[in-house]
Amino acid sequence: MSRIGKKLITVPKGVTVKVVDGAVEVQGPKGKMRQAFPSGINFELADGHLVAKTVSAEPELGKFHGLARSLVANAVAGVTNGYKKELDIVGVGYRAELKGKQVIFALGYSHAVVFDIPAGIDVVIDKQTHITVTGVDRQLVGQVAANIRRRTVEEEGWKDRRQVRIGTRDSVMKITTKGDRRHRIQLRQRKRIMGTKERPRLSVFRSVSHIYAQVIDDLSGQTLVSASSIDPKVKGSLGKGVTGGNLKGAEAIGRTIAERSIEKGIKRVVFDRSGFLYHGRIRAVADAARKGGLEF
C-alpha cells in the first residue's frame, strides 16, 4: 500500500461528497467537480473522512493508490478554497485586457493575440499586466496558465519567452542541493526545447533504481508513448541482474521507447535530458533509441 494513499481525506463543513462508480463527485463553496480515479481503487466515506482502498493486495496497485488519493484530495481542496496561478506580463507597452471569455494581449506584434478562456476557469487582470487564473480543478488551472504563456510567445514563430512569466517577477531560484541545480538546468533547457505533433519531445528521467522515458507533444499536453523500468511488460522482459538502475536496463528502455514510437508512426524527436548530465544511463537510453530507429 502507498504511504500517501493511506492518509485520510478530511471533508470540510459545507462540502458534500458522493462516491460513484469510478469517480468522486464533490461540491463546495467554490463550485463542483467530478474527479475520476484509476481502476482497482475504491473510496469509502465514513465519519467525515474519505478513505482510499485497493480492491486487492496486488503490489502493482500501490502506485495507483497514492495517485487516486491525491487526485480526490485536490478536488476537495479545489471546491473548498480553489486554486490560482499568477502571471506577470514583462515588457514596455505590453498589456492585456479581458473581453467576455477572451483575453486580448498586446505584445508588440502587428496584431493582437487572443486567448479563449475555457469553461471552469476565471481570469482577472489587474493594472493590465498582472493576470490571475482561478478555478476548482488544479490540473486545469495549471494547464491554462501554461497555455497562456505558450500562446503568447509562439505567435508568428516568436521564441522569446520573456513576455509572460509565471509567478512574481522578483522570485529568484535558490540553489542549495544537486536537485535544485538540475531543476534550474532543466528549466533553462525547456525554454529551447518543445515537442510538437510532427516532432515530439523525448524526455528521460532517472532515479536511483529506475529510469523513465516519455514521448510528449507539448502543444497538446499529451504523452504519446512511454516506457519505464517499472512497466510490468518491460520489467518482465529484463534479464537477471538487469534493472532500471544500471546501463543494461537503460538500454532496454531506449529500445522499448523506440519500438513503441515507431509503431505509432513517430520517427523524429527532440531529446530532453531533464537537466541530467549526458552520460551514464541517460546516454545509454539515447544511444539505444537511436539504434532502434529514432532520429534526433
Rank of each mutant, 00 (worst) to 15 (best):
S203E: 15
I166W: 02
Q139D: 13
T16S: 13
I257V: 15
Q186T: 03
P200V: 02
G91W: 15
T168W: 04
S110P: 01
G292P: 01
I230G: 01
V11I: 14
A286Y: 13
D231K: 04
G221Q: 07
H279M: 13
V215Y: 08
A146E: 15
P118G: 01
K233R: 15
V144I: 10
V242T: 14
D180T: 09
F296M: 09
G5H: 10
G5A: 09
I211Q: 02
G245C: 05
A284R: 13
L67R: 07
G91N: 08
A68Y: 09
G135N: 07
G108Y: 10
G142R: 02
G236W: 01
G249Q: 02
G157N: 12
R138A: 14
Q35R: 13
I166D: 00
E198W: 00
G22P: 03
V208I: 05
G28R: 06
L247C: 04
F271I: 02
S2I: 05
G14S: 06
D122E: 15
R190L: 08
K191A: 11
E60C: 00
P29S: 00
V208T: 09
L187D: 01
R161N: 12
V79F: 08
R169F: 00
L71E: 03
V79R: 07
S261M: 09
L224T: 14
V19F: 05
V270M: 03
S226G: 05
I175T: 12
V11F: 04
P59A: 15
H111W: 13
M173D: 01
V26R: 04
